[in-house]
Amino acid sequence: MAKTKAAAPRKSTAAAKPVRKAARTVARKVTEPKTARRLWLSYPPEHIKEPVIWQMSQRFPITFDIRQASVTDKIGILCLELEGASKDVEAAITWLRKVGVRVEPVELSALES
């Protein structure tokens, strides 16, 4: 079995290339640092009717998991977990802040007096 596997790429250079490419892709995905962030999101009233989380999921390749939500006509509060490549999660958080959503870790006031 090992011999057959090792020999296979040598049969055709053309056939071997995609295999190597795929391997490289997998390797990149595996080594890319992953992260999961637990966050409180607060929406100002003007964003309450906008599908902000859906928009975020369309822009960034991350998963979200909503754990708590409270929406009134004055404020929207959402507790969720974002998971994905670190750079994508950070980019999503930056985007959320840019559109006016306040983002805090679930720990909230880690910095005390």
């Binding site: 909230l108 880690a110 910095l111």
Partner: peptide
């Protein structure tokens, strides 16, 4: 600024084997 200090502390508390008193 405050947000960044807050986030870093939450991350450190999650990663290191330390007793973070208020986390």
């Amino acid at each position: 600024h405050y947000d960044e200090v807050n986030r870093l502390c939450a991350e450190i508390a999650g990663k290191y084997g330390w007793a973070f008193v208020n986390v």
